[in-house]
Nucleic acid binder design. Structure first.
Length: 359
DNA sequence: AAAGGTAGCAACCGCGGAATG
DNA sequence: ACATTCCGCGGTTGCTACCTT
């Protein structure tokens, strides 16, 4: 419990002097216990206030300034899936704080969607009644997906801050999810190595705005290689990741399954990302054709300043390739193309259905 | 120029879960 | 097993700058 000190603690805006004291202390000693930090740092603030100032403002790895179109669309998509779980959303927007994202949503994106006639809570057009039977049927799926996303967000936080193995419950949850929906489970490799904190599909979305014009789908001239071919990516070692081209997906009508390792593996391989993203956009497009999608495609892709903005290096994830691709890892690194179409269709449907209650 | 309204954002508050003894 | 402490999250408030009338 937070108790008020007998001495009156300062509240309100931080001064430059206070900032410098806090910054200097943390740079020298680390934050340690937030509760005891203020006294040690010579600040008349509560520990909570110090922590907030640090995490939302002073931390050196914070990117400030206007959010890019790419970041905006990521927020919208993640919000459609996660609701107001700002920390989980922030985990997929490097260098942005949950507070900043929350503010941005409340002051801008929410209003923009409202103006467009879209309910910012359900992400559906306001004149289309919600609560369909389908939505009800998807409740369970939604809960699992939500839980999975949260577990991944936790992993992201843990591994980025400590580089320690994830707690067993997180890993268990991920395994349960993947088993339940017949997707490739995340695999624990060597004990000291943590999976890169990524939400596979959403990272694939994030990673690629290099191809802003998605109208090429269906155009033979732009389909890479033959419709059934695959692309191989070098992963910095002898292992390769096999990913089907857009054409292969269309042809075979299968939904690819990636796990975190797969996507991390293609980091830095621009063509790989473009292709992964292409798949997702294709899925989205096909989904659009079969559902009353709330968003016109251009809602996300209307900006001119789209740039490939996902910076994997920013995650400070530098796995040793020999660890990364050892033993059982090899199997998982090969793209697994289960027929998990239902999984993806339902997940994508979810985007246009109402948020579900927590487990 | 002044008053009122609005937008944007930093910071606070209360709650709940995790960690610890 | 329980109580206490610590920390993080999401909701909310309040301040400031800007805009409109």
């Amino acid at each position: 419990m937070e108790r008020t000190n007998s001495r009156e603690l300062k509240k309100g805006p931080w001064t430059r002097d206070e900032d410098q004291k806090l910054l200097a202390y943390i740079q020298e000693h680390g934050h340690g216990s937030w509760r005891s930090l203020p006294a040690k740092a010579g600040l008349e603030r509560c520990g909570k206030s110090c922590r907030l100032r640090w995490t939302n403002y002073l931390r050196p790895d914070i990117k400030r300034g206007k959010l890019s179109t790419h970041e905006e669309k990521t927020i919208i998509r993640l919000h459609a899936l996660l609701g107001n779980r700002w920390s989980a959303i922030a985990a997929h927007l490097p260098k942005r704080t949950d507070n900043e994202i929350k503010n941005y949503w409340n002051t801008r994106l929410k209003k923009r969607l409202t103006r467009m006639g879209i309910d910012p809570v359900t992400h559906k057009p306001k004149n289309i009644p919600g609560g369909s039977a389908q939505a009800a049927n998807l409740s369970h799926m939604a809960q699992w997906e939500t839980a999975r996303l949260e577990a991944e967000a936790r992993l992201a936080r843990q591994s980025s801050s400590k580089l320690l193995p994830p707690p067993n419950d997180n890993l268990l949850l991920l395994h349960q999810f993947h088993r339940k929906f017949n997707a490739a489970p995340p695999q624990r490799r060597n004990h000291h190595l943590v999976a890169p904190p990524c939400l596979d599909v959403l990272r694939a979305w994030q990673a690629t705005t290099a191809v802003p014009d998605y109208s090429f789908f269906g155009s033979a001239a732009n389909v890479i290689e033959s419709p059934t071919s695959t692309l191989n990516f070098s992963c910095g070692s002898s292992t390769t990741l096999t990913v089907p081209t857009v054409g292969a997906i269309i042809e075979n009508d299968v939904m690819p399954t990636f796990n975190s390792y797969d996507v991390a593996c293609v980091s830095g391989e621009e063509t790989g990302y473009a292709d992964v993203d292409g798949k997702m956009e294709n899925l989205m497009q096909r989904h659009d054709q079969n559902s009353n999608l709330a968003y016109p495609v251009d809602l996300y892709d209307c900006g001119d300043d789209m740039t490939a903005s996902y910076d994997f290096a920013a995650d400070n994830y530098n796995p040793n390739p020999s660890d990364m691709f050892s033993d059982s890892a090899a199997g998982a690194l090969v793209g697994e193309f289960d027929d998990s179409k239902n999984y993806w269709n339902e997940l994508l449907n979810l985007v246009s259905s109402s948020p579900m209650p927590m487990l």
